[in-house]
Simulated scan of single mutants.
Amino acid sequence: MSYYEPLVYTVSPEEEGIQLKTILQSRMQLSRKLLSRLKRTEQGITVNGERKYISVPVHAGDRIEIRMEQEQSEDILPEDIPLDILHEDDHLLIVNKPAGMIVHPTHGHYVHTLANAVVHHWLERGEKVRFRPVHRLDQETSGVLAIAKNPFVHQHISEQMKAQQVLKEYMAVVHGEMEADEGTIDGPIDRDPEQPHYRIVTPDGYPAVTHYRVVERLKGATLVAVRLETGRTHQIRVHMLSIGHPLIGDKMYPAGGGPSLPGKAGIERQALHAYRLGLVHPGTRRYVEFLAELPEDMQRLRAALSGGTGAASIGSPAVDDSKGSGPPD
């Protein structure tokens, strides 16, 4: 039987005598479902290399390890498609997804997806890993996307997302020159009853909060940084439309008018890019950020519409793990 790299926890003097179960659930943040699964695994939970009942007390200096059986996505066809990998370790794969690529195979789209490319990448590395994206991006949205390499990592980041502890920042080019330098859109979102594939802002919808700030005012448009507090389907696109600044190039939520784009500056998809992702790494328990710079089509659009005021640099390193052990305030 093959296992992923173990996750390790060393008991501190302050934790002397508490139950192993408490360490696993409160410190290592295992869900009850995953804990139950590990208890049935040969080497799922060990203390100093030995299997133990989770009711036993632990002692300072004890080395607790959890191991999960390796899996792979047997229903996903591997395809040799280039990947823009921002970071990879034993726990996480972070990629810069190109616009136009679907994340996971769906009905009618069984190949040419990000999943096909990632499964091929892992096979080339000799790794048996199941494809587990911890969040999704629309087909025509580019940018940073995190993929968990085992069930614990997926569960750990999912819990962070539920607790709104994951930083998700996007760059968007919207129609119109925004007056305010920053703002918050608090508008519940739900399906349009007349067009179920569309989302609308409605009082009876699910809570949705979007924060934005102006990065650069362009000619008839604005480059904005957008931070999500919630993660509703099409949230940025629907919220920006609701305040009269729909995304340039958005065919599903189009504007009635907009700037005339010179030359070949037109963009063939919504001008939306997942620029920054920040989370507590499940393996190191340190807060890290992953960044992907604006793709070529959005850079071209920005250049074509430049000439306004208020320009700001958005350059940053691809990975920043110097933030310590907690998310941003």
Rank of each mutant, 00 (worst) to 15 (best):
R286D: 12
V214Y: 03
L86G: 03
Y212D: 04
L223M: 15
S306M: 05
D297G: 07
V118I: 13
H104L: 09
L93K: 08
I66C: 06
T309I: 07
L24N: 05
D80G: 03
G205L: 12
Q155D: 15
R227S: 15
K168L: 10
R302E: 08
E88N: 06
A292D: 10
R37A: 15
Q72L: 09
D181S: 09
P317V: 06
P207W: 00
I236E: 05
S325T: 15
V224N: 06
D321F: 00
R199E: 08
G108S: 11
L92G: 01
A148D: 01
I267A: 06
P282L: 08
G49S: 09
E140W: 03
D192W: 10
H91D: 14
Q235I: 04
D204R: 10
G266D: 15
R276L: 15
K149S: 06
K251D: 11
S158Q: 12
I248V: 14
E16F: 00
E293C: 02
E127I: 12
A115C: 06
S142Q: 10
G220I: 02
A99Y: 01
S26P: 00
K33F: 00
I66K: 11
L218Q: 12
H107G: 05
V58L: 12
A225V: 03
L218E: 11
S316E: 15
